[in-house]
Simulated assay, not measured.
Amino acid sequence: MGELRSVGNCLYAQTVTIRATNKCGLTTEASVTFTWQYDPVPPVVNNVPENHKLPCNTRPSCDLVIALFNIEAKDNCDPNPTLNCEAGPIEQIGPCEFRQSFTFWAVDKCGNRSADYVTVMLWKEDTEPPVLHNVPEGGDLGCNPTDLPECDPNVTATDNCTENVNVICTPSPIITIGCLRLQYFTYTAADECGNAASQTVLYWWTVDTTPPIVRCPDDITVQLQPGDCFAEVVYRAKAHDDCDPTVREAVCNPPSGTFFEIGQHTVTCSATDRCGNTGTCSFTVTVYGYICGLKFEDLNGNGTRDPGEPGVEGWTIILLASDGVTVLQTTQTGPDGSFCFFGLLRGTYFVVEEDRPGWVHTTPRSRQIDLPRDCGKQVVFGNRRTR
């Protein structure tokens, strides 16, 4: 029997030589070499972690754990020992919390079995986002608010799996569109598994301290016609506001369609925008009155015009101011003896007829007229011929 020798990697060899001699003294021999592996050392399992927390909603398996941690079996003699894994039952240990144990061992080709290597995987299963509470409604803050919106500290969040969920409020920059201001507030809450809830609140308000522009019509002049003591005047004032498009018409006082008496009247028109800014303008309505009358020949001299008494044409009638001296207008009677003075404002006037030779007055020569009180009152002068 030959010497026992190592041929590498736990392999050993020994040669056995067999000789045979017959009775004639002839000898022959044959040699056989035996090779075998000698391995009393069990394999080991490397990279098995201690208890490990996996990402949410990651249900483990043997293959996943092996790949995740690069678990491998090593042996001093077997280059490819068999790695074995056994998964334990899944246990729920809390709300949404689970664990599962995994046992690893290895066996080499000599049948040596390694020790058991045990690790526990922990994870959460949660696909529901948190719920936000007390989120403000936002809305219209009106005009020129003194307090601008801020993140509301009363907003909270709850979650079915995560006990304490923080709420993050992100305000946008204030957006300016003309007089309108907009600002968004986004409230976000995320649980441990990354499920997020988000809600955006919009506030808007108007910045406007400028009153509307009101455009009144030009001053209006109306001349009353004989028989009328009031004039219906129609007008319209337009308005414009840079911030309130609903402002288009102004409200006038007195309103359009008012019947004005003789005199000068101030009309004030105003428009108010939704922020309470008021713009005004004014114009004047001037209504001119008249004084009309008749000059007749008083045939019977009774001071009253009777049927058949004709009007006198071409007689000079004078209109004096309230001082009774200043001449305002002069006119001549018409073919029928009538006359009128126009363009008269409110006040006291005196109407005087001229003296003419050969005629005597049968009615007062001067008459006082107060406008608008005496509007429409006819002034009648009677005269009788003396020759």
Rank of each mutant, 00 (worst) to 15 (best):
I168V: 11
C169T: 15
C169F: 03
P173K: 12
P173F: 10
P173H: 10
I175Q: 15
I175P: 03
T176C: 00
T176P: 04
C179E: 04
L180P: 05
R181S: 12
R181K: 09
R181A: 06
L182V: 04
Q183E: 10
Y184L: 14
F185R: 03
T188W: 01
T188D: 02
A189K: 05
A190D: 07
E192T: 10
C193W: 15
C193E: 09
C193F: 08
C193S: 02
C193T: 09
A196W: 10
A197Q: 04
Q199E: 06
T200L: 11
T200M: 15
T200P: 04
T200N: 08
V201D: 01
W204A: 15
W204P: 01
V207H: 00
V207M: 09
V207F: 14
D208K: 09
D208I: 05
T209I: 02
P212E: 04
I213A: 10
I213N: 07
V214R: 06
P217Y: 15
D218W: 08
D219M: 07
D219P: 14
I220N: 03
I220F: 09
T221S: 13
T221M: 10
V222C: 09
V222M: 03
Q223K: 15
Q223A: 01
L224A: 01
L224R: 07
L224D: 14
P226F: 05
G227V: 13
G227P: 10
D228P: 02
C229P: 13
F230K: 01
A231M: 08
V233L: 14
V233K: 03
V234Q: 11
Y235R: 02
A237I: 07
A237V: 01
A239F: 04
A239G: 11
A239D: 04
H240F: 12
H240Q: 08
H240G: 03
D241Q: 07
D241I: 15
D242H: 12
C243D: 03
D244Q: 13
D244R: 12
